[in-house]
Design a protein around this nucleic acid. Structure first.
Lengths: 196, 196
DNA sequence: TCCTTCACGTACTGAAGGTACGTGAACTTT
DNA sequence: AAAGTTCACGTACCTTCAGTACGTGAAGGA
């Protein structure tokens, strides 16, 4: 039954496990998904799963990594289209709010992520993907004098926290005007950081 | 062995379960704590636990409720000392950042809470305690014309999300100046909301 | 061709959350 | 105050879960 070279087969199995567990984690939540359900959906057995991942949490980690890379990519491609650094910040934040409305991203990245891996690990993973962009842009804006001189880290956490929570709320809200209202309020808060 | 009236005994057992599980949940995290560990610490059996709570998640819910009430109380008593509504907002936010540095509150209220109960339920519980105060004050400030007229909800979520994330970061940070920097950045963002 | 490696499958284990049912003391009723 | 009822728990058990030990057969190297 196994097809192709060994490395190919290995990769196919791993991807099937990540893909199916991502789908199940997103719809049911980490705690409500059993490993037996995952391996059945992926068409393999638990032997295969534990050959690739050392634990259920490690499997989740691989899924979260994939999700975060996708989010970072989608934000970067929106932000990098702008020349002005300030506009990169604004459009990047708006892109995040839009992208994060996806329930898949919600549950895995924002709800289960911190609880399963612990907040510090979750933070560290963010730092290497989408979180890095935000800190980078804010740092640039401070350096070029657009934003009032201040430590970057507190600002980064305040803003990313604000957007995370807002995204979760937006996904649950019914009124389509909420997105617009939130973006306006966010931009207003960002404007406050500018030197007059 | 049982002492006093039936209602008294019932209450003692319940409080012992909540107290011990709160301690264990806070130090080890919800997932890492077994029911057997909880009932052993509380000096009862699983029969008692399931007589009071319908599930492990319900027990956690009771713990979270207690924690949130304490936080709301501590914030309210700081904020209510002020006469000016604007100063209530500022001092309330600062009180939240200070109170939320407690690792007990961190783990239960900010990390495990959304994952165990689901984000919407977690949000609903916040809304009835500390979250209500924030929305209340912001609403008052808009009404009295101190803050630019706008929908209250987006603002509330942006701010509470910012403070939640900031609190988690502050608890992990080493530099004592971080708290001050964060509060300054937060106040600056709040100032942006004022009418000129 | 023989041997080694490795990507799995199979069969099992301990512990977890949860349940069914028994029990004895606290309350109620007559 | 005796009999009956309620209820706060304890005991014993079940199911399901994450995790492990070990076997197997095909791929790759000699």
């Amino acid at each position: 039954m196994t097809r192709g070279t060994r490395a190919e087969q290995r990769e196919r199995t791993r991807q099937a496990l990540v893909r199916e567990s991502r789908r199940l984690f997103a719809t049911l939540g980490y705690g409500a998904v059993g490993l037996s359900e995952i391996v059945r959906a992926a068409g393999v057995t638990k032997g295969a799963l534990y050959h690739h991942f050392s634990s259920k949490a490690e499997l989740f980690r691989a899924v979260l990594e994939q999700v975060q890379e996708e989010v970072a990519e989608r934000i970067a491609e929106t932000a990098d289209a702008r020349e002005d650094t300030w506009e990169q910040l604004i459009s990047g934040c708006q892109a995040f709010l839009t992208v994060s409305t996806d329930p898949v991203i919600q549950r895995i990245m924002l709800v289960d992520g911190p609880a399963v891996l612990g907040w510090s690990e979750w933070r560290a993973m963010n730092e290497t993907t989408s979180g890095r962009h935000l800190a980078q842009v804010l740092g640039d804006l401070i350096e070029e004098g657009t934003i009032i001189a201040q430590p970057v880290e507190p600002l980064t956490h305040l803003l990313s926290g604000a957007m995370n929570e807002a995204a979760l709320w937006l996904a649950a809200s019914k009124d389509p005007a909420d997105l617009d209202d939130t973006q306006k309020a966010l931009v207003a808060m960002l404007q406050a950081l500018r030197v007059t």
